[in-house]
Design a binder for these strands. Structure first.
Lengths: 212, 212
DNA sequence: TCGAAGTCCGAACGAGCATTCGATATCCTT
DNA sequence: AAGGATATCGAATGCTCGTTCGGACTTCGA
């Protein structure tokens, strides 16, 4: 009945199993779609009985929510840590996009599910938390762009447009990235940043973008 | 039972009604999600009885397929016409992105549905046609980028990455564009093109991008 | 104006699904 | 080693939803 063990010694195992289930669920949902995946089907893919799923999650929707959290929480945390440091804005931007792309590539399935279920996430009070996280992250990106702009190193033609362009590029990466492909996460990230910065008439191919 | 009238005089009305239904369905699917929308619910939103839907479409899936066609066919056609002309590559790129963004903005609902149902579209023989159209359009974009590159006007750091970046930016536009927003479709398109071209060290703000 | 073709209706059907639950097996603690 | 907590099971339940169908109404063509 989805109860976290009261005995502390067992919590670790329970939590770990929960995370594993989310990982597997993300994979299956990304492939077959959230609604098209039946709970028994998911359970089988995870090597569990149907009922066991409900030991870890009260329902299907919480599974989806867990996937969103697993995607957004670490991203937000890393981004915050980065913004707190007082590095030059341009360097911050590059670092942010690098970790972001790396995360998207790492959590490709989560990302695909997150995008596919936009219509669920964008409605209803239950999803306020997820929406807030997404919003917070986007604001962090915007903040970095603002810093870059104000540092005068680069002037973005339109800051909002630059933000949305960046969001589009990075998020879309989940759709085409292949682990065995010729491009690594860092190369991709640097490519995006170069577009954005060079696009505003600064460095044509920043020293910082030299990769591997 | 979804039979096209044999009497020619009635075909026009039938076809028109079909298109209208697709339009409405796209709106509802974009908002509530394809799977989450029940056929009676959809029918009601369209001011029809449940059974009437099946007069125009043999099933729910064909509704989705119709939406994809309504999105891709005109886009593909316009793009082809553009590529056939012998304009300078750079101008072609700008024109292509302009009509593309305009279409995305025009068919925002279709686009959202198309993106959300990726997992359906990418599987199964039934969807081969839609996949082929998508692929064909992407190849047209790639072709234009190649021309730009080879004309020597601009050298894209990595042509594939540029292509995917562009696809990401433009497709993502459907997520944030608002008709009452400050940015028009053409401004957005030009912004994207400027990023791409300026990003490769050519024109910082092309004359062609002057909008309105 | 008559008959046929087309359009629309909405209750009823049956398959598929999320979730429940009582039982069983396994694990910690003492 | 015993007992309670935890973990897993999978068949049964009740509901939702896509689709069907027989009939009523409307429009077209001659």
């Amino acid at each position: 009945m989805a109860t976290r063990p009261s005995r502390p010694a067992l919590r670790a195992r329970y939590d770990r199993r929960r995370q594993e289930i989310l990982l597997g669920a993300a994979r299956v949902f990304a492939q077959h779609g959230y609604d098209q995946t039946a709970m028994p089907e998911l359970a089988e893919a995870l090597g569990l009985a149907t009922g066991s799923l409900y030991h870890y999650f009260p329902g299907k929707e919480q599974l989806l929510m867990g996937i969103c959290d697993q995607l957004l929480d670490p991203l937000l945390e890393q981004a915050r840590a980065l913004l707190d440091r007082e590095d030059p804005p341009e360097q911050q931007l590059r670092a942010l996009v690098r970790l972001w792309v790396a995360h998207v590539v790492e959590c490709r399935d989560h990302m695909l599910v997150f995008q596919q279920e936009r219509h669920v996430i964008e409605r209803g009070a239950t999803w306020r938390g997820v929406r807030a996280s997404r919003k917070r992250f986007e604001r962090l990106v915007e903040e970095v762009l603002t810093r870059v702009d104000e540092a005068g190193a680069a002037t973005l033609a339109d800051r909002k447009l630059a933000l949305w362009a960046l969001l589009g590029m990075v998020n879309h990466t989940a759709q085409w990235y292949r682990a065995r492909g010729p491009l690594g996460a860092q190369q991709i990230a640097d490519g995006y940043v170069d577009l954005l910065l060079a696009g505003s008439g600064v460095l044509s191919s920043s020293a910082g973008s030299a990769t591997r």
